[in-house]
Amino acid sequence: MTMEQAAQMGLESGYRQALTALLYQLADDELCLGHRDSEWLGLAPDIEGDVAFSSIAQDEVGHAVFYLERLHELGEKDPDSLAFFRGAEAWRNAVLLEQPNGDWARTILRHFLYDLFDDVRTEALLHSSYEPLAQGVAKIRREEHYHLLHLKPWLIRLARAGGDAQERMEQAVMEVWAQLGGLFSLGAEEEEMIHHGLIAWGREELYRRWEDRAKPVFAEAGLKWPGPPSVPEQDGRRGRHTDHLTELIRTMSEVAVGDPAARW
């Protein structure tokens, strides 16, 4: 679908703007995290875990591609241009996801909490007024289901193992919590997204439903619930990021920018 086609579809500009903003949030969350996940390739604590984690990384990047393709249909640039040639200020991922992985405890914790959030968010998209999004999300949820099945026991076992594993997990909770709140932001277009029926719930409901599911897992893991996370200084959903995103984009696009006109 070209921009003209999008216009022909009768997408009025307010609708299109809110939809585009939402798709960027989805795409950039998945791409950032998938990229970070792939940094563990060859380095995970055991070889079986390495292989499993790589499948998760590939799923996340694959989901990002799906959202980027939908953006392209709406008249945005092609997926590769959006992934490799977009300045950090144009990215809409939550700041939490652009942070370096840290140790395995933090990697597992962040991923689990994000996937739980993504599960709630995609649930809110199942009846989206934008049919291509609703359909894609139904398929994506089937894959994400397995991520949660994989990550939840990892989190619980590490936290319950005592010793340095438990200490590292408690430390990870403190670190992740500092930026966790940014996940739930829907940015400047939140009202428009809901108004147009693109997403069923806003940030407060997303958070409430997420907390309902995260708290019992913390209890099972023997981790103290730290309370609602504060909103981080930078809201990635409004294009405000840490230097880690700039570094991530620089790394990711190193080859591509070598000759932007070339086919790779």
Binding site: H35, S38, E39, L41, G42, D50, V51, S54, S55, A57, Q58, V61, G62, A64, V65, L68, P79, D80, A83, F84, T251, M252, S253, E254, V255, A256, G258, W264
Partner: peptide, 19 residues
């Protein structure tokens, strides 16, 4: 080269390959 693969298709392919 996994983090630097120059297109999304290449990125996915090389991730799968190293895996």
């Amino acid at each position: 080269w996994v983090p630097k693969a120059p297109t999304l298709k290449r990125k996915l392919a090389i991730m799968a390959k190293v895996q």
